[in-house]
Design a protein around this nucleic acid. Sequence first.
DNA 1: CAATCGTGGTC
DNA 2: TGACCAAGATT
Length: 338
Amino acid sequence: MSHKLSTFSFVESVNAWQQQHGRHQLPWQLNVNPYKVLVSEIMLQQTQVATVIPYFERWMQNFPTVEALAQATEDQVLNCWQGLGYYSRARNLRRAALYITAELAGQIPADIEELRKIPGIGPYTAGAILSFAFNQRGVIVDGNVKRLFARYFGIRGAVNSTAFSKTVWAYAEAVTPTQDNRRFAQGLLDLGSTVCKPRLPLCDACPLRPECFAWAHNQVESLPERSPKKTIPKRTGHFVWDYNSEGLLLEQRNDTSVWPKLWALPEIDTPTSTAKSKGEFHHQFSHYKLHACIWHSKDHQSDNKQSRFTVNQLDTVGLPAPMRKFIESALDLNAEES
DNA sequence: CAATCGTGGTC
DNA sequence: TGACCAAGATT
């Protein structure tokens, strides 16, 4: 690797490409500050840029500073996050603001160990904040870097294995420079997402092609390697539909389930034999398929916090995306029938 | 360590 | 069309 790096400047190639062809106008790149970087990096975890942008804009309107976020309630935060998924990110981001305000005098630290103490900040996000917020050396390994490095260095093994991750982190530590880190980190991400793509990579446009292992060995399509896919299980869930003149009955889900702390139709173990169906919907999570059955019911008892919401009030609570679709569809049908 | 945690984009 | 994947973290 050292020979390769000495005869071909990986860093300079990435940086020069980023300056010419990389992204420079993303919302969190304009008038950059550490809080914007923190918010964007949390939102971007396992979520595509195009999906995040409108959420980021709305978030910064509602919670423009760490202090503003620290003063928000969990319900306000979840309402702003609804539809983006992985809701523990939202709750951790609020906890992060409380921690930064209480323990760090409102300042996001430019220190890897201090960053790692903040809720929701793992090894990738800590490195990203160092690079993007402070232009300091911060090592980043995400899906883009794993794919790009697997091809460029010829790293074998399943991308989702621990061994593969450790190997890529070691390469990243070795490659990451001590200067111009904002540009280098952005260059890695931009190259990975726009050129070294999962499928149909644009090798003709890649500045790293002269020294790319996968290109030289015709393995661009077969790297990185994937572990054999698992069959994901199917589950059935039953939910209660109770809508009257005072609104729709919802309950706040507990935090040990999917959609933690979000408001949703009350969930039941099994419907009664006389229950009348209100409808159903299907939803695919990353790890199982849900078949949701909705049953007409009244006066459902639950340990969870319950409340009724009118149609207008539904906009002010955090609802799971598929359930919001079902509810809005069902209420529209009601309106047409009446 | 492997499972869990959402949703939408892409081809 | 469905399988893969996305600026991962937590337990």
